[in-house]
Design a protein around this nucleic acid. Structure first.
Lengths: 217, 217
DNA sequence: GAACCGCTGGCAACTAGCTGCCAAACCCCT
DNA sequence: AGGGGTTTGGCAGCTAGTTGCCAGCGGTTC
């Protein structure tokens, strides 16, 4: 096979590069904008089958946050995670679809075109390596799906936000309560509620959670 | 020019793709492991010249945190930022060097080889687009150089890291101290040191700081 | 060995934070 | 107005965290 081939359309891709998928042994990584843009019909089953059928050591899938908007795709994600793949959500937009297999092949999806979506399959080490490293960087900075779902804005009312700010300022409970014009007792009640909402066992942990969720900026 | 060309060695690259650099008009983005791995001699001046000479709208450079270890490269970075380029520091490792120009050409550097480093220059829209999108994702999640230098990791030894982890786990001081095999007194001393290092007035605040600085992942 | 570190860990006094209990205040609905 | 639910805030007792003080315990230095 040449170092780099361009293929138009999904069917053609499956026909000409399908064998690559079954040849994956070590690692399969994928960054995509949508959940399984790709073998579209019966997406969940086929995805699961693909993961389960092959003896791949490690499957990592990185998605844009937009995959979480619909209930369907959200369920698909959870299922995907349940079937052994590591799933993370990036902060921003991602490619249409970019796949690296065993650090040897890369498949990059281009824009839709009249002739079908353009896919480029390459074995060029520089391209594969570069894409893989960029994937790593994006992966590192992304949030695990579980954490993302768990931490999904534990919707806090404005009161709790104020408490959060007070806590973050480093003031003592007494000062904070005075500042907020409420009694010490109530302030502490609020703090307790906040810890419960953040599922934190200590104020420190709550601080970490709050910081991670960007509830303090 | 063909869609994709592989070139061995820096000199050859300059000779055969140098004209691309001067043709850039809109945007020049670059992710690299080191500061200007590449036209090595007089790196600062040439980099600055390159930025200044061309009427490029936007220059973005993303580096691994390792560029900050040496005083020299650190100075180089600041200079680079001063000359108009946007500079950010990623959380993890990056490719040797990956460049995208005007979203039309990409240059990906591979590993060193006997014949010189291998560079792949491509205009394949799928590859360029995929690399660009991954770059975007990594860029979004990275920290601006200025912010990075300002808030630079209050260097913590491994002991403090362990304490940090224990605190983050939500355990009580007693449990944490037992876990870490130290006395309650010492554990709390460590916590106090940590709070001082993070310049935090309360454990909650320390948690926020730690979370923001990503000291808990 | 003696003097001198830095680090540890026990003790103790203190402060801050946590929570159950209850009365008072407030709100909404009839 | 009156009843029922929710929220508030005081009190109290308790636990957890904070800090100073000092006695050890290993190194290093002279």
């Amino acid at each position: 096979m040449a170092e780099s081939v361009t293929i138009h359309g999904e069917l053609d891709l499956l026909a000409r590069a399908g064998h690559l998928f079954s040849s994956v042994s070590e690692e399969f990584v994928c960054a995509a904008r949508d959940l399984d843009t790709w073998p579209r019909p019966r997406s969940q089953e086929s995805a699961r089958a693909r993961v389960r059928a092959s003896p791949v050591q490690r499957v990592r899938k990185l998605f844009s946050p937009t995959v979480l908007v619909g209930e369907d795709s959200r369920r698909g994600l959870v299922e995907l995670a349940g079937s052994g793949a590591q799933v993370r959500i990036a902060a921003g937009a991602l490619p249409h679809e970019t796949i690296v297999m065993d650090r040897r092949y890369a498949i990059l999806a281009g824009a839709d075109a009249p002739t079908g979506r353009a896919y480029t399959v390459t074995t060029d080490p520089a391209v594969v390596g570069g894409v893989y490293a960029l994937f790593e960087a994006a992966w590192e900075a992304a949030t695990d799906l579980a954490a993302f779902l768990r931490g999904e804005q534990p919707h806090l009312d404005s009161g709790s936000r104020a408490v959060l700010r007070a806590l973050g300022s480093g003031a003592t409970d007494e000062a904070a309560a005075r500042e907020l014009g409420m009694s010490l007792r109530t302030y502490r009640r609020r703090v307790a509620e906040l810890l419960a909402a953040l599922d934190a066992g200590s104020r420190f942990q709550a601080g970490v959670r709050a910081g991670e969720l960007g509830l303090t900026g």
